[in-house]
């Protein structure tokens, strides 16, 4: 009898605590999404068609990073094969050979090569080794201190 009372009390307490949390989701306010305004797509279509026709705009949109790199640096410029404007301006410059696949190393120079792999794992090895050594020494020293304390007390 006593057990049943206790169980009932626990269940009631749990229900009292959990019910508001469970019910809170039921009372959220419904916010209607803003109605989409009727957009006239004609200007966008015209702009897209103009962009396709304009080779300079196309280049800036499709190959911006390379274009900025080549404009900022002193190296030969990368000209899009279909871009008549830039290709004419850089007719003398050889087009770079973009490496196929995902090469990670460059051992010989070629036009358009990626930079040599100068990444070195040694700093990571050094840092990991020092961290590991520190933790190891800490564990050993802690155990040794515990042994000395136990001997002194016992």
């Amino acid at each position: 009898m006593e057990l049943r009372k206790t169980t009932t009390a626990i269940l009631l307490t749990a229900a009292t605590l959990l019910t508001p949390a469970a019910l809170s989701a039921q009372f959220t306010t419904f916010v209607a999404p803003p109605r989409k305004a009727a957009v006239d797509s004609a200007p966008a279509t015209v702009a897209a068609a103009k962009s396709r026709a304009d080779s300079v705009a196309r280049m800036s949109l499709t190959d911006m990073k390379t274009w900025v790199d080549s404009a900022a640096g002193t190296s030969t410029q990368v000209a899009s094969a279909n871009d008549t404007t830039m290709a004419a301006a850089n007719a003398a410059a050889p087009s770079p050979q973009v490496p196929s696949g995902n090469p990670q190393t460059t051992t010989t120079f070629s036009n358009g090569a990626i930079a040599p792999n100068t990444a070195s794992p040694l700093p990571a090895y050094l840092a990991a080794g020092l961290a590991s050594l520190s933790v190891g020494l800490f564990l050993l020293r802690r155990r040794r201190r515990a042994v000395v304390t136990a001997r002194r007390d016992g």
Binding site: A128, G129, L130, S132, L133, V135, G136, L139, L140
Partner: peptide, 12 residues
């Protein structure tokens, strides 16, 4: 502790 010390020493 010993294992970590050895591994650390090898890396360093």
């Amino acid at each position: 502790g010993l294992g970590l010390c050895i591994a650390g020493a090898v890396l360093v």
